[in-house]
């Protein structure tokens, strides 16, 4: 979560040869976005603590031995930054290639766009390149976990943990290429601490975590975002006042999310707001109705 540390002090810095200023405490990514430099991110989300693990946002900082992650490097006075040098492009391209060669990124729309932008060719590592392919986990009626699509961005762990839900049902387990998101001893979600708030799904950038409703429609070939409407409303279950974005297709609710920039929810909901809408689609509720 980015915290405003604006003390009135502004630093002068240079991005791609253009002079600019930024408040103390801002990150390089904040500055890039403020001046309109399109910077790819995968593990970064405004509402979560930056973990800077995907390394797709790296930039070249004059005087630094290695590239630095824009998402978490705080600006200093006099920084000279290049975001589009060949060195930066090469790193970003290969990070995307590494991921796309090991993970099914077919549903990661923003990543697809960045792969096109950087000319990523994940097939260059050969047909035998090791992947994280594995069976889909379906062990409950609300979530589907398809870790063949997981890029290990840590967002779900953060949302489940102290950045949002404080449930701690999942964590990273294993090491190296075998590192993966897991419950304790890989028990199913019904046996874990999971409270089905859906916040992990809300932050997943690749479709590895999905609501059963969406998963089933995708399997049946009926999921069609072009036909979907989004309607904002306020959750009526308690007095907190969370904004719900109701996604409907053909006048049927297909999922519920919340805007990430909403100052009450930061995109996060509880099980009631997230899933307590099934009754809406039930046509005949009363014998006299």
């Amino acid at each position: 979560m980015s915290i405003s540390l604006d003390t009135g002090v502004r630093f002068s810095l240079e991005i791609d040869g253009v002079a600019t200023t930024a408040p103390a405490g801002a990150t390089i990514l904040d500055v890039c976005r403020a001046v309109g430099v399109d910077t790819p991110t995968l593990c970064y989300l405004e509402t979560l603590t930056p973990v800077n693990v995907c390394r797709v946002c790296v930039v070249e900082l004059e005087g630094a031995r290695t590239l630095v992650p824009a998402c978490s490097r705080v600006v200093e006075d006099g920084m000279k930054i290049r975001t589009d040098s060949e060195r930066v492009r090469a790193s970003r391209r290969m990070v995307l290639e590494f991921l796309a060669s090991s993970v099914d990124v077919s549903l990661a729309d923003d990543m697809q766009r960045q792969m096109k932008r950087y000319g990523a060719k994940p097939e260059r590592f050969g047909a035998e390149a090791r992947t994280v392919r594995q069976p889909v986990k379906v062990d409950n009626e609300l979530y589907v976990r398809d870790y063949s699509k997981c890029i290990l961005c840590y967002k779900c762990v953060e949302a489940c943990g102290s950045d949002a839900q404080n449930t701690f049902a999942i964590a990273t387990a294993g090491r190296g290429f075998d590192a993966h998101i897991s419950t304790e001893f890989n028990v199913g979600l019904p046996d874990s601490a999971c409270v089905y708030c859906g916040n992990c799904i809300g932050v997943c950038p690749t479709g590895a975590l999905m609501f059963v409703s969406e998963h089933e429609m995708r399997e049946a070939g009926t999921w069609d975002e072009a036909r979907q409407t989004k309607t904002d409303t306020i959750c009526g279950y308690c007095g907190v006042g969370c904004t719900l974005t109701v996604h409907a297709q053909d006048n049927e609710i297909v999922k519920v999310s919340s805007p990430a920039d909403h100052d009450v929810t930061h995109g996060h909901l509880c099980i009631k707001g997230r899933f307590g809408w099934k009754f809406v689609g039930v046509k005949k509720r009363r014998s006299d109705g």
Binding site: N52, R55, F98, L99, S102, F125, G126, L152, G176, A179
Partner: peptide, 21 residues
């Protein structure tokens, strides 16, 4: 490949691709 902690993409996947290559 065996000792990479797996946190960042360049090392987690790069060490695998390096060994394969």
């Amino acid at each position: 490949r065996h000792e990479s902690c797996g946190q960042c993409v360049p090392c987690r996947i790069g060490t695998v691709r390096q060994e394969e290559s």
